[in-house]
Simulated scan of single mutants.
Amino acid sequence: MQNLRARGNQRLANGRVNWLAATTVFLLTSGLAFAGLPAEDSENWSLRKETDHIRVYTIDQPNSSFQAFKAVAVLDVPIENLMAVMINPKSCVQWVHNCSESYAFGSGDFDERYAYSVNDMPWPVTDRDYVLRIRTRGQQADGEIVMDLNAIPDQREEEDDYIRVDKSDTLYRFIPEDDQTRMIWVQHTEPNGSIPGWLVNTLLVDIPIRSMEQLERVAQWDRYQNYELIYNSQGQLKDVVPKAESGDD
Rank of each mutant, 00 (worst) to 15 (best):
M1L: 05
Q2L: 14
N3K: 14
R5E: 09
R5Q: 07
R5T: 08
R5I: 13
G8N: 02
N14R: 10
V17Q: 06
N18S: 14
L20A: 11
A21P: 00
A22D: 05
L27I: 11
L28V: 14
T29P: 01
S30T: 10
G31L: 05
P38H: 13
D41L: 00
S42P: 15
S42T: 09
E43Q: 11
L47R: 04
R48F: 01
K49Q: 12
T51I: 12
D52V: 09
H53G: 07
H53Q: 07
I54H: 02
V56G: 01
V56F: 03
V56T: 06
V56K: 00
N63K: 14
F66G: 04
A68L: 09
V72S: 01
D76H: 05
E80H: 03
E80D: 13
A84H: 07
V85F: 00
I87M: 00
N88W: 03
N88I: 06
C92Y: 08
V93K: 03
V93L: 00
H97S: 02
S100N: 07
E101S: 08
S102E: 03
Y103F: 14
A104I: 05
A104R: 10
F105W: 14
E112H: 15
E112L: 13
R113A: 09
R113F: 10
A115S: 14
Y116I: 09
Y116E: 09
Y116T: 08
Y116Q: 10
S117K: 05
S117N: 13
N119A: 12
N119C: 09
N119M: 10
D120R: 10
W123V: 13
T126G: 02
D127E: 13
L132F: 05
G138K: 04
Q140F: 13
A141E: 14
E144A: 09
I145H: 00
V146G: 02
N150Y: 01
P153V: 05
Q155K: 15
R156G: 01
E158L: 06
E159S: 12
D160E: 14
D160R: 13
D161W: 02
I163M: 03
V165K: 05
V165I: 15
D166A: 01
L171R: 09
F174W: 10
E177A: 09
D179F: 00
R182Y: 07
R182S: 01
R182E: 02
M183K: 01
V186C: 02
H188Y: 10
E190L: 10
E190C: 02
E190P: 03
E190Q: 10
N192M: 12
N192I: 02
S194H: 03
S194N: 10
P196W: 04
T202C: 01
L203A: 11
L203K: 06
L204I: 06
V205R: 02
P208A: 01
P208D: 01
I209M: 09
E213L: 07
L215K: 00
E216Q: 13
V218S: 00
D222H: 11
R223F: 04
Y231W: 08
S233M: 11
Q234S: 15
G235A: 10
L237E: 02
D239R: 04
G247I: 10
D248Q: 15
D248C: 12
